[in-house]
Design a protein around this nucleic acid. Structure first.
Length: 131
RNA sequence: GGAGUAGGCGGCAUGAUCGCCCUGCACAAUAGCAGGGAGGAAAGUCCGGGCUCCAUAGGGCAGGGUGCUGGGUAACACCCAGUGGGGGCGACCCCAGGAAAGUGCCACAGAAAACAGACCGCCCGCCACCUUCUUUAAGCUAACGCAUGGGACAUGUUACGGCGGAUUGUAAGUAAACCGCUUAGUUAAAAGAAGGUGGUGGGUAAGGGUGAAACGGUGAGGUAAGAGCUCACCAGGUCCUGCGGUGACGCAGGAUGCUUGGCAAACCCCACCCGGAGCAAGACCAAAUAGGGGAGCGCUUGAGGGUGGCCCGCCCGAUGCUUCCGGGUAGGUCGCUAGAUCCCUCUGGUAACAGGGGGACCAGAUGAAUGAUCAUGCCCCGGUGAGAUUACCAUCGGGAACAGAACCCGGCUUAUGACUUACUUCACCU
RNA sequence: UGGGGUGUCGCCAAGGGGUAAGGCACGGGUCUUUGGAACCCGCAUUCGGAGGUUCGAAUCCUCCCACCCCAG
């Protein structure tokens, strides 16, 4: 239940190969991936055939004008993925989280709550809020 | 205490857990240990440099920038110190080459908007016309008066008349001559005077309700009317001389009647400065694929190409010979952080700053790191409670700004919460 | 990140120191039984914002704001 010591610590890391870093991957997910649409986020996902889940982020400058806001939102989503990636069912998938619209309250708790709800309703797994 | 002016410092702290990036250490399957990890504005990209390539950045034109003086600096549109002008009660703040080189613009209004002087007006001369008066000589008409007639009124009379006066004369009066008075209109000619209207030739710039801005101001003399035309005082300009200052400039004295609008953030002139692009610059390694490409030497023409807008200049350059195997896209590495650096101190300088000594190492990502959660404390705001208010204490809730490095520096500008120093001014208390 | 450009009525826009053209739309009227069309009238307290130069700025200068494009 608690993230602090309940499991082994290295399970909650977020290393380089857990990130989507290529333009081709983003375009593949945009064309062929499945899509869930929430109030503030869109999630594209598809199976990747690798050993782990991967996360990609899109935060358009059109919706968030200041660099501080964009960076903060990315950190919140990364924090959610770091703590909840073991709740996603296998096989391993690529996820792209796209932020849309204005989120007034940028707290990590609200972002995680909405993303957990969104993934649960899409049948990606059983999510437990860990913040 | 209120209002204000000019600055300064620093931009919550500590701990725990889970994470991210870099460096180092060992180690080689992950993993582990140690150290470090956003800002004063990192922002806007408005200036100036470094660095890289183009030729080592060269000449001319075009274009751009700066603009009181002196200094600082790698450089600047920045900073410091001063000069002059303007604003504010004041602390303080703002502005700055040239308009008597040239061109242009100044709507509407106004006589006129930039340099000559035109228009109205004022004055003088001449011409024409008109009016009035006078004179030269009268004439005509009507009236007053008078006479006659009569009911209102009509007729006659414009002087040889009427009225008055006084003189002579007379006893006194009358009468004649003498003097004065006797209305208005009108006609023709000539001359003169005054005035007016129009035209024309000159003299003037005193005055002309306008406008953002109008040709120095006041007074006196002067004149046909006037005018710096002359004079006195005041304001300004130009020139000269002396003194002080590196200089902008200041002070003092003298000469000159010189009085000449504003706009150069309009073109422009003058002085000084600027080659172009930008780390996605540029250099190196190098799959797949397609097929050639590079280096050196020689020679005539030198098409064409290489860098900024153009010209010059410079470099490469068709073909031949020799020789070599490489070039380039995805991707990767370097550039990439030790520097006009920071801290302390001494010396020089009013200061900006410069120099010397000692110490320190302080982000380097690239789909892009510096975060999340929890606890405690500090600060601010609000509520409640205790105490008569404030301060202070307890408790609950909320808040803690602006904002995120992307090659690096120096400035400017903009955004922004709290604290604090000096000074000005107002009010109150002593 | 770097380099360029544009903001004028609800929309498209001209004007580059002297009263902000025009078209579409909108509102009112004429015409018509009514609507459309046609015709007439109206509609910018000020040109993205703030300072400055000027007698006077949409226009010239400076600084901000918003939007768009290009390079990868």
């Amino acid at each position: 239940m608690e993230p602090h010591g309940g499991r082994r610590t290295k399970c909650y890391g977020f290393s380089q190969n857990e990130r989507i870093r290529k333009r081709k991957d983003y375009e593949r997910l945009k064309r062929k991936g499945k899509r869930i649409r929430g109030k503030h986020f869109i999630i594209n996902y598809a199976e990747n055939g690798l050993e782990c889940h991967r996360l990609g982020l899109v935060v358009p400058k059109r919706c968030f004008k200041k660099a501080v806001e964009r960076n903060r939102l990315k950190r919140c989503v990364r924090e959610w993925f770091r703590l909840h990636k073991h709740d996603i069912d296998e096989p391993y998938k690529d996820l792209v989280v796209i932020a849309i619209g204005n989120i007034e309250d940028l707290s990590c708790r609200k972002v995680a709550k909405e993303l957990c709800g969104l993934c649960s309703s899409a049948g990606l797994g059983r999510f437990v809020l860990r913040l």
